[in-house]
């Protein structure tokens, strides 16, 4: 137990002292996850909304596939991206394997189905309420998408956050395609895994504390924003 409390004390020291190594790892983690979520949002919102509003053959199969992909195992995504980006793979010429770009790509693949599936649900519910009015005003599905995305913005924020939670917490995909290279592709989750296996509990716990605080902070801020906006805008 003293080991644990010593480690905890050391961890707090690292966090509060803005340790350089720790800061670098946290910085890269945020960069990778934010970019992955940004791209996934840009893709997932319109795709999810389109699937909500249009009826086409194979839609049911697509819905099932999309919902199943929400639970995609990160290691499998890592493996697929690894095979795609490795020298012999189809995108091997770009030499992206073991770079932050590969990690962003892998996390983007993980997060896009989550954002698209949750967006589909939000927009479909809104469309039930708005359809007649919007069609009466002259907006078919195509023109309704921007208005619906805008009106669903607070619920969609939750979808994006779910994606961010997934991206920042996963370890399997970034480990495989990033390789956990010090100062290059080491992020919080891969560092924790490594430090625990090395026995350096202080750094591992410090990173764990930052990861938790970050998650709580982002979700808390989003919750407050949503509450305030709904009270004000109805």
């Amino acid at each position: 137990m003293t080991d644990f409390s010593d480690a905890f004390g050391a961890a707090l020291g690292l966090v509060l002292g803005f340790d350089a190594d720790l800061a670098e790892i946290v910085g890269l983690s945020l960069r990778v996850s934010f970019l992955a979520v940004a791209i996934a949002t840009a893709v997932g919102l319109p795709v999810g909304a389109a699937i909500a509003l249009y009826r086409f053959p194979g839609r049911a199969a697509l819905l099932v596939a999309m919902n199943a992909l929400m639970g995609l195992p990160p290691v499998v995504v890592g493996l697929i991206v690894y095979l795609t980006l490795s020298r012999a793979g189809p995108l091997g010429v770009f030499g992206l394997l073991f770079t932050p770009a590969a990690m962003i790509f892998a996390q983007m693949l993980l997060v896009t189905p989550i954002i698209a599936a949750l967006t589909r649900q939000v927009i479909e519910d809104l469309w039930v309420e708005y359809e007649e009015q919007l069609r009466s005003l002259g907006a078919g599905p195509g023109r309704a998408v921007p208005a619906l995305l805008w009106d669903g913005r607070y619920s969609l924020l939750t979808a994006v956050l779910a994606g961010f939670g997934r991206a920042s917490a996963e370890v399997g995909a970034v480990m495989i395609v990033g390789g956990n290279i010090d100062h290059v592709t080491r992020v919080m989750t891969t560092a924790i895994a490594l430090e625990v296996s090395k026995g350096d509990l202080a750094l591992a716990l410090g990173l764990g504390i930052v990861l938790m605080a970050l998650s709580l902070g982002v979700n808390g801020a989003a919750f407050a924003l949503k509450e305030a906006a709904e009270r004000r805008l109805g």
Partner: peptide, 8 residues
């Protein structure tokens, strides 16, 4: 309509 639908 009977129940007005307003955008946010």
């Amino acid at each position: 309509f009977q129940r007005p639908v307003m955008l946010r």
